[in-house]
Protein backbone atom coordinates (compact mmCIF):
# COMPACT_ATOMS: atom_id res chain seq x y z
CA UNK A 1 0.00 0.00 0.00
CA UNK A 2 1.28 3.46 -0.84
CA UNK A 3 1.50 5.73 2.17
CA UNK A 4 2.18 9.45 2.01
CA UNK A 5 1.91 12.35 4.39
CA UNK A 6 -0.85 14.73 3.29
CA UNK A 7 -0.41 17.33 5.99
CA UNK A 8 1.61 17.25 9.19
CA UNK A 9 0.40 14.18 11.10
CA UNK A 10 -2.18 13.16 8.51
CA UNK A 11 -1.49 10.33 6.13
CA UNK A 12 -3.04 8.81 3.10
CA UNK A 13 -2.76 5.03 3.04
CA UNK A 14 -4.03 3.75 -0.27
CA UNK A 15 -7.46 5.36 -0.50
CA UNK A 16 -7.84 5.83 3.24
CA UNK A 17 -6.83 8.46 5.76
CA UNK A 18 -4.80 7.79 8.87
CA UNK A 19 -3.09 9.45 11.81
CA UNK A 20 -0.08 8.34 13.85
CA UNK A 21 -1.29 6.41 16.87
CA UNK A 22 -0.40 8.25 20.08
CA UNK A 23 -1.04 5.07 22.05
CA UNK A 24 0.53 2.30 19.92
CA UNK A 25 -1.26 -1.02 20.03
CA UNK A 26 -4.51 0.53 21.20
CA UNK A 27 -7.65 0.96 19.13
CA UNK A 28 -10.34 3.50 20.02
CA UNK A 29 -13.37 2.40 18.01
CA UNK A 30 -12.32 -0.75 16.22
CA UNK A 31 -10.32 1.03 13.51
CA UNK A 32 -7.57 -0.80 11.64
CA UNK A 33 -3.94 -0.32 12.63
CA UNK A 34 -1.11 -0.22 10.14
CA UNK A 35 2.66 -0.26 10.47
CA UNK A 36 4.53 2.27 8.41
CA UNK A 37 8.24 3.11 8.68
CA UNK A 38 8.46 2.17 12.33
CA UNK A 39 5.30 4.00 13.26
CA UNK A 40 1.79 2.81 13.81
CA UNK A 41 -0.98 4.44 11.82
CA UNK A 42 -4.65 4.39 12.79
CA UNK A 43 -6.99 4.38 9.83
CA UNK A 44 -9.50 7.21 9.96
CA UNK A 45 -12.96 6.38 8.70
CA UNK A 46 -14.89 9.21 6.97
CA UNK A 47 -18.16 7.47 7.76
CA UNK A 48 -17.41 7.61 11.45
CA UNK A 49 -15.73 11.00 11.63
CA UNK A 50 -16.93 14.21 10.02
CA UNK A 51 -13.46 15.69 10.01
CA UNK A 52 -12.18 12.74 8.00
CA UNK A 53 -15.17 13.20 5.67
CA UNK A 54 -14.24 16.86 5.21
CA UNK A 55 -10.64 15.91 4.39
CA UNK A 56 -11.85 13.39 1.81
CA UNK A 57 -14.07 16.05 0.28
CA UNK A 58 -11.36 18.63 -0.18
CA UNK A 59 -10.77 20.54 3.02
CA UNK A 60 -7.38 21.90 2.02
CA UNK A 61 -6.05 23.84 4.98
CA UNK A 62 -6.51 22.03 8.26
CA UNK A 63 -5.31 24.43 10.97
CA UNK A 64 -3.96 21.67 13.21
CA UNK A 65 -0.35 20.84 13.96
CA UNK A 66 1.65 18.92 16.50
CA UNK A 67 1.50 21.58 19.24
CA UNK A 68 -2.01 22.95 18.67
CA UNK A 69 -4.19 23.83 21.62
CA UNK A 70 -7.72 22.80 20.70
CA UNK A 71 -11.09 23.29 22.34
CA UNK A 72 -13.26 20.47 21.07
CA UNK A 73 -16.95 21.05 21.77
CA UNK A 74 -19.20 18.03 21.42
CA UNK A 75 -16.53 15.37 21.68
CA UNK A 76 -19.05 12.54 22.21
CA UNK A 77 -17.26 9.21 22.69
CA UNK A 78 -14.06 10.70 21.38
CA UNK A 79 -13.88 9.04 17.97
CA UNK A 80 -12.79 12.14 16.09
CA UNK A 81 -11.21 13.69 19.18
CA UNK A 82 -8.79 10.75 19.33
CA UNK A 83 -7.50 11.58 15.85
CA UNK A 84 -7.22 15.24 16.77
CA UNK A 85 -5.24 14.14 19.81
CA UNK A 86 -2.99 12.06 17.50
CA UNK A 87 -2.31 15.14 15.37
CA UNK A 88 -1.81 17.60 18.25
CA UNK A 89 0.47 15.17 20.01
CA UNK A 90 2.46 17.80 21.90
CA UNK A 91 -0.47 20.16 22.28
CA UNK A 92 -3.65 19.76 24.24
CA UNK A 93 -7.24 18.92 23.32
CA UNK A 94 -9.91 20.17 25.71
CA UNK A 95 -12.92 17.94 25.10
CA UNK A 96 -16.32 19.19 26.24
CA UNK A 97 -19.22 16.75 26.29
CA UNK A 98 -22.55 17.07 28.02
CA UNK A 99 -23.98 13.55 27.83
CA UNK A 100 -22.86 11.37 30.74
CA UNK A 101 -23.20 8.30 28.57
CA UNK A 102 -20.74 9.56 26.00
CA UNK A 103 -18.52 11.21 28.60
CA UNK A 104 -17.87 7.84 30.15
CA UNK A 105 -16.07 6.61 27.02
CA UNK A 106 -14.32 9.94 26.72
CA UNK A 107 -13.05 9.61 30.26
CA UNK A 108 -11.57 6.20 29.55
CA UNK A 109 -9.90 7.60 26.46
CA UNK A 110 -8.48 10.49 28.49
CA UNK A 111 -6.95 8.05 30.95
CA UNK A 112 -4.82 6.73 28.08
CA UNK A 113 -4.07 10.01 26.35
CA UNK A 114 -2.08 12.61 28.26
CA UNK A 115 -3.07 15.45 25.92
CA UNK A 116 -6.81 14.87 26.11
CA UNK A 117 -8.58 16.83 28.85
CA UNK A 118 -12.09 15.50 29.52
CA UNK A 119 -14.75 18.03 30.54
CA UNK A 120 -18.25 16.91 31.41
CA UNK A 121 -20.21 20.12 31.00
CA UNK A 122 -22.70 22.02 28.89
CA UNK A 123 -20.87 24.16 26.35
CA UNK A 124 -23.56 26.82 26.54
CA UNK A 125 -22.38 27.47 30.12
CA UNK A 126 -18.62 27.99 29.78
CA UNK A 127 -18.43 29.17 33.39
CA UNK A 128 -18.72 25.48 34.27
CA UNK A 129 -15.30 24.76 32.81
CA UNK A 130 -13.46 28.05 32.22
CA UNK A 131 -11.18 27.28 35.17
CA UNK A 132 -9.66 24.38 33.25
CA UNK A 133 -9.01 26.32 30.06
CA UNK A 134 -6.45 28.59 28.49
CA UNK A 135 -6.33 30.51 25.21
CA UNK A 136 -6.64 28.03 22.39
CA UNK A 137 -5.57 28.05 18.74
CA UNK A 138 -8.58 26.20 17.39
CA UNK A 139 -12.19 25.65 18.35
CA UNK A 140 -13.69 22.54 16.82
CA UNK A 141 -17.42 22.27 17.33
CA UNK A 142 -19.83 19.54 16.42
CA UNK A 143 -22.99 19.66 18.52
CA UNK A 144 -26.68 19.11 17.86
CA UNK A 145 -28.23 21.95 19.83
CA UNK A 146 -30.37 24.47 17.92
CA UNK A 147 -28.33 27.37 19.31
CA UNK A 148 -25.02 25.89 18.10
CA UNK A 149 -23.95 29.17 16.49
CA UNK A 150 -24.30 31.09 19.73
CA UNK A 151 -22.43 28.39 21.62
CA UNK A 152 -19.53 28.65 19.21
CA UNK A 153 -19.29 32.42 19.45
CA UNK A 154 -19.62 32.46 23.21
CA UNK A 155 -16.68 30.07 23.50
CA UNK A 156 -14.67 31.86 20.84
CA UNK A 157 -14.97 35.18 22.69
CA UNK A 158 -13.74 33.59 25.87
CA UNK A 159 -11.11 31.17 24.72
CA UNK A 160 -10.01 31.63 21.11
CA UNK A 161 -6.87 33.61 20.44
CA UNK A 162 -6.96 36.35 17.84
CA UNK A 163 -5.99 34.80 14.52
CA UNK A 164 -7.10 31.37 15.75
CA UNK A 165 -9.38 29.12 13.74
CA UNK A 166 -12.85 27.69 14.04
CA UNK A 167 -13.97 24.40 12.56
CA UNK A 168 -17.72 24.67 12.82
CA UNK A 169 -19.95 21.79 11.81
CA UNK A 170 -23.44 23.00 11.03
CA UNK A 171 -26.11 20.38 11.34
CA UNK A 172 -29.05 22.04 9.61
CA UNK A 173 -31.57 19.53 10.89
CA UNK A 174 -30.78 20.37 14.50
CA UNK A 175 -31.31 24.07 13.99
CA UNK A 176 -34.63 24.09 12.19
CA UNK A 177 -36.61 21.93 9.83
CA UNK A 178 -36.11 24.22 6.87
CA UNK A 179 -34.14 24.27 3.64
CA UNK A 180 -30.55 23.57 4.70
CA UNK A 181 -29.15 26.15 2.27
CA UNK A 182 -30.96 28.92 4.08
CA UNK A 183 -29.72 27.79 7.45
CA UNK A 184 -26.12 27.50 6.20
CA UNK A 185 -26.32 31.01 4.83
CA UNK A 186 -27.67 32.35 8.10
CA UNK A 187 -25.00 30.62 10.15
CA UNK A 188 -22.20 31.86 7.90
CA UNK A 189 -23.59 35.36 8.19
CA UNK A 190 -23.72 34.97 11.96
CA UNK A 191 -20.03 34.09 12.04
CA UNK A 192 -19.09 36.93 9.67
CA UNK A 193 -20.84 39.59 11.67
CA UNK A 194 -19.16 38.33 14.84
CA UNK A 195 -15.70 38.73 13.35
CA UNK A 196 -14.93 35.40 11.69
CA UNK A 197 -13.34 35.43 8.27
CA UNK A 198 -14.75 32.46 6.43
CA UNK A 199 -11.99 30.60 4.58
CA UNK A 200 -13.88 27.59 3.32
CA UNK A 201 -17.37 26.15 3.50
CA UNK A 202 -17.88 22.54 2.60
CA UNK A 203 -20.97 20.37 2.25
CA UNK A 204 -20.43 16.89 3.67
CA UNK A 205 -22.51 14.88 1.20
CA UNK A 206 -22.43 11.95 0.61
CA UNK A 207 -21.03 11.15 4.06
CA UNK A 208 -23.46 13.27 6.08
CA UNK A 209 -26.79 14.66 5.01
CA UNK A 210 -27.54 18.38 5.45
CA UNK A 211 -24.21 19.09 7.12
CA UNK A 212 -21.69 21.79 6.40
CA UNK A 213 -18.22 22.46 7.73
CA UNK A 214 -17.15 26.07 7.96
CA UNK A 215 -13.49 26.85 8.42
CA UNK A 216 -12.92 30.38 9.63
CA UNK A 217 -10.36 32.68 11.12
CA UNK A 218 -11.13 34.64 14.27
CA UNK A 219 -10.35 38.30 13.84
CA UNK A 220 -11.27 38.96 17.48
Amino acid sequence: MRVKELMPGIYRAGRELATVNLTPGRRVYGERLLRHEGRELRLWNPRRSKLAAALMLGLDKLPLHSSSRVLYIGAAQGTTASHVSDIAKEGVVYCVEVSPRAAHSLLRLAEQRHNLIPILADASSPEEYAFLLERVDVIYQDVAQPEMGEILLKNARLFLRKGGHVLYFIKARSIRAEKPERIFEEEIERLRSAGVRVLQALRLEPYEKDHMLVLGRWQG
Partner: peptide, 26 residues
Amino acid sequence: YRQRLHATAVAIARLRLRRALQSRDM
Protein backbone atom coordinates in the same frame (compact mmCIF):
# COMPACT_ATOMS: atom_id res chain seq x y z
CA TYR B 1 1.09 22.16 34.60
CA ARG B 2 -0.40 19.96 31.90
CA GLN B 3 0.10 16.89 34.06
CA ARG B 4 -1.63 18.53 37.00
CA LEU B 5 -4.40 19.77 34.70
CA HIS B 6 -4.93 16.34 33.21
CA ALA B 7 -5.14 14.58 36.57
CA THR B 8 -7.52 17.19 37.99
CA ALA B 9 -9.76 17.25 34.92
CA VAL B 10 -10.06 13.47 34.97
CA ALA B 11 -10.95 13.54 38.67
CA ILE B 12 -13.54 16.29 38.18
CA ALA B 13 -15.10 14.53 35.19
CA ARG B 14 -15.38 11.40 37.30
CA LEU B 15 -17.08 13.31 40.13
CA ARG B 16 -19.50 14.96 37.72
CA LEU B 17 -20.23 11.68 36.00
CA ARG B 18 -21.07 10.06 39.30
CA ARG B 19 -23.28 12.96 40.28
CA ALA B 20 -25.11 12.81 36.95
CA LEU B 21 -25.66 9.07 37.20
CA GLN B 22 -26.94 9.40 40.73
CA SER B 23 -29.74 11.75 39.80
CA ARG B 24 -33.27 10.57 40.24
CA ASP B 25 -34.10 11.89 36.78
CA MET B 26 -31.81 9.26 35.27
